[in-house]
């Protein structure tokens, strides 16, 4: 299952609107500009997504996940290399804290940051498609390349994979957003994109 160019472009724009809103929320928390962009969306198989993440030099990850259910279900996940996650928390919480103090806050702070970004992406989809999702609260986990939740399970799943670029206080930090969808959910998502495009007279 794959996206045509216009579907991919539409999804990219919708997620960019989402991360734009998330950036505005984060910027309100830090009272400073926060830039977030997700340049492009890829649709890959679970194993390929794992490979992209494993391609990173560091293999300790900080992940935040939420399960969304609605017209289609998605397990959404924000993944940062552990050192980047700590850096984000440092930049968000402020420079007055030692690294030890920061790590004590890291899990919950990352949970909240992930919650803001993932909710924003999904509510952007919901707004554009005029649909509604329910969601679990965010869950933070540390993981290495061997126990990353994405590697779990044997059900065939597709992954929407976005690279996120975050800039806080002139520091660029990279991570990924993943949406794991079952094959039926993926085709429901594609239907919604097509319906949206045709409602706008574009397809």
């Amino acid at each position: 299952m794959s996206l045509n160019e216009l579907q991919r472009d539409a999804l990219g724009e919708i997620f960019n609107i989402g991360v734009g809103r998330a950036a505005a929320s984060l910027s309100q928390i830090v009272s400073d500009e926060v830039l977030l962009s997700a340049p492009e969306v890829m649709v890959v198989h679970r194993e390929q997504a794992a490979k992209v993440l494993l391609g990173a030099e560091l293999n300790q990850f900080s992940t935040v996940s939420q399960s969304f259910s609605g017209p289609f279900d998605a397990q959404a996940m924000l993944v940062f290399p552990e050192s980047n996650a700590l850096e984000i928390v440092r930049l968000m919480v402020g420079p007055h804290m030692s690294i030890e103090e920061l790590s004590e806050f890291e899990q919950e702070a990352m949970c909240e940051i992930g919650n803001i970004i993932l909710n924003a992406c999904m509510s952007s989809l919901a707004d554009i498609f005029h649909i509604r999702f329910e969601s679990t609260l965010p869950l933070h986990r540390f993981g290495d390349t061997y126990n990353l939740p994405i590697l779990d399970g044997d059900e065939e799943q597709m992954v929407l994979l976005l690279q996120v670029d975050m800039i806080i206080s002139q520091q660029r930090i990279q991570g990924h957003i993943l949406f794991l969808l079952s094959v039926p959910s993926m085709s429901a998502l594609l239907d919604h994109i097509d319906r949206y495009l045709s409602s706008q007279g574009l397809a």
């Binding site: 724009e13 960019n16 609107i17 734009g20 809103r21 505005a24 910027s27 952007s124």
Partner: peptide, 24 residues
Amino acid sequence: CTANIQESTREAAARAGVHFVAKP
């Protein structure tokens, strides 16, 4: 016409003398 809806972008738009429109 941008998804970047932060106050800082709106201000930058105003300084550059352009009109700000939020996506979608």
